[in-house]
Design a protein around this nucleic acid. Structure first.
Lengths: 338, 338
DNA sequence: TTGAAAGCGGTACCAA
DNA sequence: TTGGTACCGCTTTCAA
């Protein structure tokens, strides 16, 4: 790092001690106005910036928040959360360290360790697995806020999404349009979110006297292909329902494509729903009815919680569950078959 | 922050000075194996993590890199860059501070200042404007790597993309398919990238004896709408070409939608190209022929440059220009009209 | 109104 | 082989 001016540098030029300079710059009451003026002018000319690492070291504070996610972009919604976290953190004078684990538990752990070493005050973790013991070990005494669906609701600090409710909303919407043959397309349950969606779906179907059909294909990492495979599987068996709900938007895009390849129209022949409400869901030619998860709110809540954890020395256990909401677009419509 | 064990904590338990502990943990040659063993065991039990802020303070080093972008997700490609930066930085034991400016020059400057205060060794900035004087002022002596297209090629450290070449490639592809009536849809030129694309396009067209048609509508922040508007404008004037190249993928999605609303098929009636090769460009129902910008490579190069800037005390001026490449998908085809 | 001393958590240097 | 001392840049306390 190139040498940057310090309090001493300024002090030398102003003929003062670095202590006086420190006080002057922070408008301490016991420094004369004239001195303050002079010191500030010199600091400006030098382009002085306080070394927050040193300040934080002495004050035993921190001005950074850590965040670790499975991936940024593509088929995830973490970018939505990050944007909020970044904005809210900046408003509180905090910087955000972000790490992408590329869905690797090893890298996830590594990011946590590095950030803890770099003195983040809190870690906001959207873990790539449902087993967070390694993450917790890596974080030591640094408080962790688990975010997203994959974490067990028993964690001390967690901001979760009610995916069972997603199932209820999806069935309510589709059944309301007259659909009775509804299938859920999911992946192999790598984590809790899938299981929650499945049970919410089954429950809602059964409570209406409908029989739930669940098709599991592929993995979250290749959701698009999984969606195509799911449809093929249903077609092979000759069991194509009048509506499908997909565990993710990305999967729904794959499903819609497979259906169109077979000459089926959406929503004329079959209705399709997704989950997450990613950006592209509202692209006009996709226009996907989906379940919106309040990522923006979760991001804001995460920072609010992070700040209070930092200020209260990590004594604020908090669990908050966010509710998904229905986002109706063009991919679902009334049932025309029986 | 909750109290974390320090070298002194360990020393007290081991009956040693914090100095001996420090050496033992770093495997110094002048500490006995037995002592090392004992110290490491205690450190493990306590879950000790070195305070990198303190270490860096003394060693006058840093272990963080800063990155500021206009936005993450949606219609930008910065998430692609970030993923690479995160991975490459982690491999070098660096954490990345990421800030989203939400396309606001004020917030951009603020992020830079905060990160500089927090002692990042370098800043990788994809500025939201072409005027980077404020950013440079905010960074002071901390080296900055400008990335993306909006920065003037004269900056000391910059990783740019050759958007003029994009124009050449687009025209080459479309002309090769027999198209002679080709329009470029762009926005109001808020920054240099647009101007470069326009001039590359015009040049390539003229060198083939074709007359370039450029339509400017809307802004980058609402690219989808801009794409729809551009098509409407061409239709109103009855001047619909046989192919359009859009300044961004997102804009192309809007253009394709507007065309389909008019009952035109792609690429049967008209070919459409985009720019950037964002994730959704390869979604099967979008299948957009576009120009791929090597974001992954740029991310890697940015970190490599960042590390050398940190190690060489900011003495490595470097300009690198990356070439876009053609990504042919289903939205372009042979010209069927004359 | 100003500054000397101490300390935050770490590492380098040198003496014991 | 070990530990004392000094210092990185900053702030707080207390004495001048």
């Amino acid at each position: 790092m190139p040498d940057r001016p310090t309090l001493k540098t300024i002090g030398k030029l102003a003929g003062l001690s670095h202590v006086a300079v420190s006080k002057a710059l922070r408008d301490a009451p016991d420094i004369s106005a004239a001195t303050k003026e002079r010191v500030k002018k010199i600091a400006d000319e030098l382009g002085y910036t306080p070394n927050l690492a040193a300040r934080n070291l002495y004050l035993r504070r921190t001005s950074t928040i850590g965040m670790v996610v499975p991936a940024i972009g593509d088929s995830t919604a973490y970018d939505l959360i990050f944007n909020e976290v970044s904005a809210a953190a900046a408003a509180h004078d905090f910087c955000v360290m972000l790490g992408s684990s590329h869905r690797s538990p090893q890298l996830e752990e590594r990011h946590c360790r590095m950030m803890v070493g770099n003195q983040v005050g809190v870690l906001i973790v959207a873990s790539c697995t449902s087993d967070v013991s390694r993450v917790k070990a890596a974080c030591g005494t640094t408080p962790v806020i688990f975010i997203g669906g994959k974490t067990s609701p028993e964690e001390t600090c967690s901001l979760l999404c009610d995916y069972r409710h997603s199932g209820a909303l999806a069935v309510e919407h589709l059944a309301g349009l007259g659909h009775t043959q509804i299938a859920l397309l999911t992946y192999e349950p790598e984590n809790l979110t899938i299981l929650q969606k499945e049970s919410g779906f089954s429950e809602a179907m059964e409570s209406r006297g409908l029989s739930p059909r669940i098709v599991r294909t592929g993995h979250a990492a290749s959701a698009l292909q999984a969606g195509m495979d799911g449809i093929e599987l249903l077609l092979e068996k000759g069991e194509l329902p009048t509506a499908v709900w997909c565990a993710s938007d990305y999967m729904a895009v794959g499903a819609m494509h497979a259906l169109r390849l077979r000459g089926l129209s959406i929503p004329g022949d079959i209705s399709v729903m997704g989950h997450d409400d990613l950006y592209f869901a509202r692209y006009p030619d996709i226009s996907l009815t989906t379940l919106h998860t309040p990522m923006e709110e979760m991001g804001k809540a995460a920072v609010a919680l992070a700040i209070s954890l930092i200020e209260q020395d990590g004594l604020v256990p908090a669990r908050q569950v966010f509710q998904p909401s229905l986002e109706i677009r063009g991919s679902t419509g009334p049932c025309r078959r029986r």
